[in-house]
Design a protein around this nucleic acid. Structure first.
Lengths: 154, 154
DNA sequence: GGGCTGAATGTTATATTATAACGTCCGGTT
DNA sequence: AACCGGACGTTATAATATAACATTCAGCCC
């Protein structure tokens, strides 16, 4: 997934993501409850990865465990990813593909682009194999400047 | 750097790391003060990445800012790495090379192996370029089972 | 429908990780 | 000696996350 262009129809992109999530949950026999759906929508509304307490505030009258439980559910079903560097969460661009998360994170505007690069994964998988390491999950987080911010402040 | 073999001389490996750190600080005109050296030694003593509050406890009578300031210094000078997934710190195997951190993290025993794989870095750099992204720092954290733990519980 | 059951949520408290703000000390320079 | 800036001490608090237990709700069986 590329960095979002400024003029893209984000409302539509949220709708699509929620639809895909419904679908994926049906497929997996998982219950996308009201709270879970609301959290997922809030995550998608934000272009940048968003933190648990920001979600909490947006939800209104909820306590931390409510948000964390929803996030756990969404993570478990591959509907969102956690960005470790930021302690924040972002919608998964391709639910159901169960990919490892690879991200380009913009220092300036905070936006994130999800990669799904087979070459990167293969390179890590290969290195792991050479070390006799059994790879389970892979986190790749690259920090820098997105195309837009690069243009602004050269 | 490979996973440490059970019988390796860890005392020696700490000594070497501290020596290399002294050297690197001299080269950079940075002051490796007593506290900083003690924190670095504690980090190296632990085979697994170690958290700030564990270091704090090991130090004895210190307050959080003391440890965090030492960690900041050590990070800034490339003497340790931070493992984002674990909120923990580990000695840098090659100070002075200013490499990105690439790690294999064992789920079971908690040990970490630092990679310095040019292929992985090139793959990410390439993907970033294709997205018009200016890469600054790269974090790669692979989770799974190290050779030893894989053998134990098949 | 009534009652059962397990999952989901509510609620309170607390753990864990990290930083702000400000004062003091100490080492090097002039 | 006087200064200066970096390092450290100290107190308080912010930000992130989870434990533990009570309550409610959805689906199912009868």
């Amino acid at each position: 997934m590329n960095f979002p262009s400024p003029q893209h129809d984000h409302h539509n992109c949220i709708t699509q993501a929620l639809g895909a999530a419904e679908e994926e949950c049906r497929r997996r026999g998982a219950r996308l409850t009201d709270i879970r759906r609301r959290v997922l929508e809030l995550v998608w509304r934000s272009h940048a990865p968003i933190g648990a307490y920001a979600l909490l505030q947006a939800l209104g009258k909820a306590a931390p465990p409510t948000v964390y439980r929803a996030l756990d559910f969404l993570l478990a079903h591959g509907l969102i990813h956690r960005i470790e560097k930021l302690n924040a969460y972002v919608g998964c661009a391709h639910p159901g593909h169960d990919q490892a998360g690879q991200f380009l994170l913009c220092r300036q505007c905070g936006s994130a682009a999800e990669l799904n690069d087979a070459v990167i994964e293969a390179a890590v998988r290969d290195a792991a194999r050479r070390h006799g390491f059994e790879l389970a999950t892979l986190t790749v987080e690259a920090e820098g400047l997105c195309p837009a911010c690069r243009g602004e402040s050269p």
